[in-house]
């Protein structure tokens, strides 16, 4: 098995063994989405109107809670040194971490979101687009999360800090994803929104691991 796949396998195995970590992130996602009808009242029209934004913003917040899994534990228990000494280039190490993070966070949210969308009375035409935006957007979230998590290795209050620095960078993803879902609900073409999301993903796949690798290099020194 190549070291790249071994890093992914290691993180997946850890995630499976510490299953409550993932479950907590997903539970947060579900609970916060459920708070909106409770706060706004169960008016179907209103909920349908805000459903795209609620699902995406909550997914972003839930993802913020999951970033401390990426490097924080490894940096505290010495595992990060071992990962670096695997000889894998740091950018590839970061990419492997992002893949494992997406498989354990983005993918489950992708599966959960349509179910939650039913509870928010999302327009029937929007479901396919919702899933498409999550499929294109959540990998970007994982990639930026790896950059943020690598930057805050060893920082005080790392969990809050990573949200503070990553959330503004994810604003374009939020904008294009939510406008795509809204456009689908209004019967408008969604292709251009999805293309923008795809372009961001295509840019993030090479650039984010590179930046995260640089950040990890700095974190070790």
């Amino acid at each position: 098995m190549s070291p790249f796949l071994a890093v992914i396998a290691r993180d997946l195995r850890l995630a499976r063994r510490q299953g409550t970590d993932i479950a907590m992130t997903l539970a947060f996602f579900v609970v916060v989405v459920a708070l909106f009808p409770l706060g706004l009242g169960p008016t179907p029209d209103l909920l349908a109107r805000i459903a795209p934004a609620v699902l995406w913003i909550t997914a972003l917040l839930a993802a913020m809670l999951s970033f401390d899994r990426l490097f924080q534990q490894d940096s505290e228990d010495g595992g990060l040194d071992q990962l670096v000494l695997s000889g894998l280039p740091l950018a590839l190490l970061a990419l492997a971490k992002a893949c494992a993070h997406w498989l354990t966070t983005g993918l489950p949210m992708l599966v959960l979101a349509p179910v939650l969308a039913i509870s928010l009375n999302l327009a029937p035409d929007s479901y396919a687009t919702l899933v498409a935006t999550l499929a294109l957007g959540t990998p970007v979230v994982s990639l930026f999360g790896v950059v943020g998590a690598a930057l805050v290795v060893g920082a005080r209050r790392a969990g809050v800090l990573v949200a503070l620095i990553v959330l503004p960078l994810l604003i374009p993803v939020l904008i294009f994803a939510v406008s795509a879902i809204e456009a689908a609900g209004a019967g408008l073409p969604v292709r251009v929104h999805l293309l923008f999301l795809g372009a961001i993903l295509a840019g993030a796949i090479p650039l984010a691991p590179f930046a995260a690798g640089a950040a990890l290099r700095q974190a070790l020194d």
């Binding site: 805050v152 920082a155 209050r157 800090l161 620095i165 503004p168 640089a214 700095q218």
Partner: peptide, 26 residues
């Protein structure tokens, strides 16, 4: 917001060099 994130990050480390390098990447 980007400025706030940068300022928070560079000041979050005990080692000033570490904060400076993280801030530079950000």
């Amino acid at each position: 917001f980007l400025y706030l994130g940068y300022i928070a990050l560079v000041n979050a480390f005990d080692d000033p060099d570490r904060g400076g390098r993280a801030g530079a990447v950000l």
